[in-house]
Design a protein around this nucleic acid. Structure first.
Lengths: 342, 342
DNA sequence: TTTATTTACGCAAACGTTGCCGGTATCGTG
DNA sequence: CACGATACCGGCAACGTTTGCGTAAATAAA
């Protein structure tokens, strides 16, 4: 099954002209007479001619498309970021290729392989939870591929980054729990590799320290796949519940972990917030419909996408190598609902 | 900022060979001596050579990528379908370009313009709610672009289609409401243009008829943007609530409409299911966490994606024009929870 | 009328790759 | 020793497009 489209050659042949004349006419060159231009343009419309972007890319060495790698598009946070990216990209004539790593280092590697072998002009990425070795990303960056990180950034690659102020966000959320008189606050975090995990835990521990609470390592659990595997969340929750001094509040440091923990606690018939209070990261607008309604730390996802795309386009279109990289840090919203107050 | 990658020419020049020799060596042609092959391959590894897919595409007239158009990736149903598509596509060496129409006919048009101007080998699409005129899709199809429809299909374009058995699903859901003794059952549907709207309403009306219930047009409301605009859902709900004979049950015929109606009713402090029962399409796994938990019609989304991708790849790779098109019809799951029974 | 300038177009190369058609050694066979 | 066969490699064209350069004809200036 073939899908043959009209080319500039077809037009040239049909009209007895050269391809260069046709090309120039379509681009409104002054070198072509009005009469010829009209003839060519009319015929182009008639046969519904579209320039071949593949040929253009080969010649211009650019594809006018940018690659986006997220953990999972079903995650509301990421889909909102993508919406932000698209809004800027489309407005500037760029297309967006969306891909998901599913938190897998192998899949991420595959995706990068495909995206970067010259089919994108730049990359916006939030790295997979599993990934420890950023050698290939670093290599791509050194070779000159414009990269912007968002959310989960790689600290030792020097480029633009867009993040939420995770530390402050978690600090305030923890403080909220403390002020509501919760005594034993535990945290379930994403993979310890991730920048967001470090920042969020830092906020958690600082809040505890500032309020003279002990920091107990037993009260911090990790889900290495960001909650993508339900069992790891179950294991984390159960090990917390099994503690002799059982926590009376949980702070959940990743979107998927938040909703899954909620589901697990309901399943176990543990009353929220009476038995255990919870607050956690989440960008879904469904959480208000939960029972009890869920207190969340919500990130300015759309804005993050816009910012990241803006920075990337700037990188792509700047003639000379950029050396002055910025780290945008946006404030999260803390939305207090029923799940975190008695 | 440039991102220059190694080419076959670079290898040829460095080793004093011709590009054709290098090309053949890399593809393990018998015409090249083992010694030369080794030299070339070693050097290729050393400079991290990757074939340029853009050049390949131009030459081979195929891109090994397929385009996917959905209404909104944030919609769980669509993201599950995408996961299904990806699983099949990747396994067959194809890449997937994900795009969203946001139910807008203009955006859909733009996307199709980009995707089809020779940068994809085939298309999987669920059309936007707004779209009435399928002329361009039809044209693309006639020109030979392999297309597979899923979910929202276009009846008068003859190609493979993958759908849920919407009529039966809604029939059974409506029957469930009837059996639970609900008397005045209303429906809120998506745009009347859509195939799914027709099928779902058909199931609704047949169930009513089969149980000797009157079919009242006032009890059917439409949201032309599939619930993407919250106000249209509010308007639909309010006009139903304003009826002298107010409905005691709602059946919601689109994913987004379901969750939004739920939110609106809660906002209005209308008790579910005491005041009004609801059941509706939705694929999110959060609905079980709602209060009350939500009864839903859930579609086999992942499987739909797999099927659609399989059919598309078959279309793409078949040598001769395919004329025998099939319509796969998968059964939905009806999950009864608290929101639809007293 | 001759010369200079403009107008309007064609030719060819290039982007990176593959494949067809060659060609030149080297080898084996008679 | 002559011949064909084989092994190994290069040249060229092509995919669709743009662009620098060349050039003929048409027009303007002298």
């Amino acid at each position: 099954m073939k899908f043959e489209a009209a080319t500039i050659k077809d037009i040239a042949k049909a009209l007895g002209l050269s391809t260069s004349t046709v090309s120039r006419a379509l681009r409104d060159s002054y070198e072509i007479s009005e009469a010829t231009k009209k003839k060519i343009k009319d015929y182009a419309v008639q046969i519904n001619y579209r320039p071949n972007p593949v040929a253009l890319s080969l010649k211009e060495k650019r594809t006018l498309s940018i690659g986006v790698v997220v953990a999972e598009i079903a995650n509301t946070f990421f889909s909102q970021v993508i919406n932000g990216i698209e809004s800027i990209a489309y407005a500037n004539g760029y297309n967006v290729i969306i891909t998901q790593s599913k938190e897998s280092v192998e899949k991420e590697q595959m995706i990068l392989e495909y995206l970067t072998s010259r089919s994108i002009d730049g990359l916006i990425i939030s790295v997979a939870a599993e990934t420890k070795d950023f050698g290939n990303l670093k290599q791509l960056h050194e070779k000159g591929l414009p990269i912007v990180f968002f959310d989960r950034v790689v600290e030792d690659i020097d480029t633009h980054k867009v993040v939420t102020d995770n530390k402050t966000g978690v600090y305030r959320a923890t403080e909220h729990l403390i002020k509501n008189n919760y005594k034993r606050i535990a945290a379930i975090a994403n993979n310890a590799n991730l920048s967001i995990t470090r920042d969020r835990l830092a906020g958690f521990q600082k809040a505890l320290a500032d309020h003279n609470r002990p920091i107990n390592e037993d009260y911090i659990k990790y889900c290495d796949h960001g909650g993508l595997i339900i069992e790891e969340v179950e294991k984390a929750v159960e090990s917390l519940l099994a503690l002799k001094k059982r926590p009376d509040a949980l702070i959940l440091l990743a979107d998927k972990i938040t909703t899954e923990t909620f589901g697990i606690l309901r399943e176990k018939n543990i009353k929220i917030p009476r038995d255990i209070a919870i607050i956690g990261f989440n960008n879904s607008n469904y959480t208000v419909l939960f029972s009890p309604s869920l207190s969340v730390i919500s990130q300015p996802a759309f804005e993050m996408g816009e910012k990241a795309a803006g920075l990337l386009l700037h990188l792509i279109e700047s003639k000379r190598a950029v050396t002055d990289f910025q780290q945008e840090c946006l404030s999260p919203d803390i939305i207090i609902r029923e799940s975190s107050q008695k």
